[in-house]
Design a protein around this nucleic acid. Sequence first.
DNA 1: GTGCAAGTCGAGGGTTGCCTCGAATTAGCG
DNA 2: CGCTAATTCGAGGCAACCCTCGACTTGCAC
Lengths: 184, 184
Amino acid sequence: MVIASRPLRADAARNREKLLAAAAALFGERGLDVPMEHIARRAEVSIGTLYKHFPTREDLVAAIFPERLAALDVIGEKALADPDPWRAFVGYLEDLYALQAADRGLNDVLARDLPNAPEVVSACHRGAGHVETLIMRAIAAGTLRPDYSVTDMATLTRAMAQVIRDSPDEWRRFLSIYVEGLRS
Amino acid sequence: MVIASRPLRADAARNREKLLAAAAALFGERGLDVPMEHIARRAEVSIGTLYKHFPTREDLVAAIFPERLAALDVIGEKALADPDPWRAFVGYLEDLYALQAADRGLNDVLARDLPNAPEVVSACHRGAGHVETLIMRAIAAGTLRPDYSVTDMATLTRAMAQVIRDSPDEWRRFLSIYVEGLRS
DNA sequence: GTGCAAGTCGAGGGTTGCCTCGAATTAGCG
DNA sequence: CGCTAATTCGAGGCAACCCTCGACTTGCAC
């Protein structure tokens, strides 16, 4: 469904890249809510140019995060490859929150609804699919409490997002306690 | 240390009460960040009058929450009265988060640093004292993991604050999972 | 070269929220 | 009653962030 639009002019393409780089950096450092002006300034481009390329903040998010969310697929595959269902599930959680802890923007993306960024949403759906499988396998193996669900994971993810924001060093310990509670 | 200032004029006293009532209501409904203008409007008083009585938001918080935080003492005493250390500890958590879930402002107060509201801080310290005792008793009884600490509780409280904000119905389930992880 | 569509720029208008200050009002003492 | 100090009022200045639009600049097709 990509409309075949004529290619960008050279300067425009350059500015687009500078904007993406600036936004990627600032989202990572400060989260999704950095002022648009800051992004433009870091890209050494005027605010008008920013809006020309990305009329809304979500356009920017949608241009940046699908690639990063591919990391979710990677850790999902990695976990699914582990023959031990419990270790696979717990490993997934650890990898996921390590990613969130390393990227403030990703942390925000995963804790927030982004209705207008379908690529982001679908990446999350893919992630949820992995999670679903990991949960079912661990339940079937009798190691995970049988009533655990993807909904619980979503709640956990929002809680973890907060823990990571407040105290970047304590999320592992918090997670390990929670995970203990999941054993059946 | 209360300075013996002459009593407020009748109309001023009335307005002060109206402001406190309005702020109490709005903090409870919308959290600590309601615009000052909204508080003034709900109190049917001008914004200038609000600032005359409470020069900063924290003054308002400090005037309202110490009383509410007394509830922490109540549930603390209640828990300490329970002869079963584990049930006491878990009961305290449930009571605490039920309070937070019922009062958006309290939820904010307990998840946030309020450096300029010493009465609030000291109420939190008292609460932490209760928690400390409950934790030590449960550890001594061998039912709580021996490395649990007040710091962990603080982290939990911030996480719970987020869960409560996002999904007011799921905090009990989230807590019960976490609590399972605390057994030793 | 030249011309024009494409792109850039940034001042400025809009919004929301914070807080101040001087003019107008009024409680309550004597 | 008056008088005065205490109180009230709200327009308006300030700041942060949003986003638009018309004038200017420039890449590039010919």
